[in-house]
Design a protein around this nucleic acid. Sequence first.
DNA 1: CGGTATCCGTTCTGATACTG
DNA 2: CAGTATCAGAACGGATACCG
Lengths: 136, 136
Amino acid sequence: MKSPGHCEGTDDDDDPRQWDTRSDCLVRDMLDRVADKWSLLVIGYLEERRHRFSELRRKIDGVSQRMLTVTLRQLERDGLVRRTVHPTVPLRVDYELTPLGATLHTTLCPLVVWATEHEAEVTAARAAFDTRAGAA
Amino acid sequence: MKSPGHCEGTDDDDDPRQWDTRSDCLVRDMLDRVADKWSLLVIGYLEERRHRFSELRRKIDGVSQRMLTVTLRQLERDGLVRRTVHPTVPLRVDYELTPLGATLHTTLCPLVVWATEHEAEVTAARAAFDTRAGAA
DNA sequence: CGGTATCCGTTCTGATACTG
DNA sequence: CAGTATCAGAACGGATACCG
């Protein structure tokens, strides 16, 4: 829906790069989920332990109720997070990482490490670029 | 700019998860770049070899000229891609990955592998979720 | 408590037209 | 060829109000 037709746009003669072209949509799909404003935070917190809706809302608190719901629903739909409803009096809902979600978390860590290790380089590159652009 | 204030929203009492909270903004920033609709494709192609603007445009072709330009500029600004202008008659511009960009590509691969390996699980989870939702 | 539905401003994107 | 500028439509995200 978000990338209509472009998945089929690369099945021509040359395409020797290492990550499967025809999987790009799924890959991009997953990256979109992960790069989503809040998903990474949610996965990070849930890896730590099980959380209630309001716990997440409070911890991440820049997030609106709507976006937290949307984020959790997406993660749930992808099988990364499990939602458990306790029909108690003041309704209670728990969220936790599924085994699949845990493997994603593991896979994500190197990227986080990369970002941390190269933060200075990226920042410097941006500053240099902006200076050049500003000098023009 | 895109996440005003939320970087400081997690510096309360408890925050034992493994990826540094205060780095989340940079991490999210990098993930945003990478998860961007076209960045991953561009990085993939450039890792393979140097490309001209029009080569990328043709290969990725679902991308509009504008978005390819924007994407390349962002990657260039972050120091991940180098832009070389050849002032020949029919102007020619080459794009290639910088060493830093190459390290990101390397870091990205596991995520791509994850997505590929778990594609079936995610797809199945989505189908199951949608069925349940549809049955209601 | 844990949502869902709706309204509405902001952002993003593609199409188009024009430039060096 | 390789862009930049502009504009309109689509998608996104927050605020609000209401429900189980």
